[in-house]
Design a protein around this nucleic acid. Structure first.
Length: 170
DNA sequence: CGAATGATCCGA
DNA sequence: CGGATCATTCGA
């Protein structure tokens, strides 16, 4: 479930050393039932990780200049992923509280690209770590942002931590 | 093959 | 609101 990711820490031990951030904004995407999902029309080379086993990464490139990072969520064979949209700096990413406020900024600050797609998030250089859960009272649910195929998908599948500067927008 | 498209961001 | 900028996808 997407909400369990809020508060957790994403850690990337890359060429530039350790970079880590606390997740404060996420969005859930499904498969054939979700027109806004990359997996809507079945698997392609790019979206293959979305159909694979859970607990792995799905990183894609968009708009010719940004990368977006997802955590694959459903069981093997079923499409589903959670887009990481915002985080707060923890280590190695500077101290601008808004440096990871937005999916493109988050990926850039952590140094993640399509090279890091389909990585095992439990036992690899890219991982998601346990951290104190975010109190229910601080979690806000809204409709997802920036979608073209919005009409059919007004589900409140965007979750964020109220008041955090790492959230992409109010 | 060519053309359209996009789960973004920034600046005016 | 428009522009930047290009991998991916789909139609012919």
């Amino acid at each position: 479930m997407a909400r369990d990711l809020l508060g957790k820490v994403i850690v990337y031990d890359g060429p530039a050393g350790r970079r880590a951030a606390r997740l404060v904004e996420v969005e859930a995407y499904l498969g054939a039932r979700d027109p806004a999902s990359h997996a809507y029309r079945g698997p392609t080379p790019r979206t293959a990780p979305m159909f694979g086993p859970p607990g792995r990464s799905y990183v894609y490139f968009v708009y010719g200049m940004y990368h977006c990072v997802n955590v694959v969520a459903e069981r093997d064979g079923v499409a589903g992923a959670v887009l990481l949209r915002g985080a707060e700096p923890v280590e190695g990413v500077g101290d601008d509280p808004r440096a990871l406020a937005g999916p493109g900024k988050l990926a850039r600050a952590l140094g993640l690209t399509t090279e890091q797609t389909n990585m095992d998030l439990v036992r690899s250089a890219l991982s998601i770590r346990e951290a104190p859960a975010v109190p229910v009272t601080r979690v806000v649910r809204t409709a997802r942002i920036g979608l073209t195929a919005h009409a059919t998908t007004r589900k409140p599948w965007r979750l964020y931590v109220a008041g955090s500067p790492g959230v992409s927008r109010a």
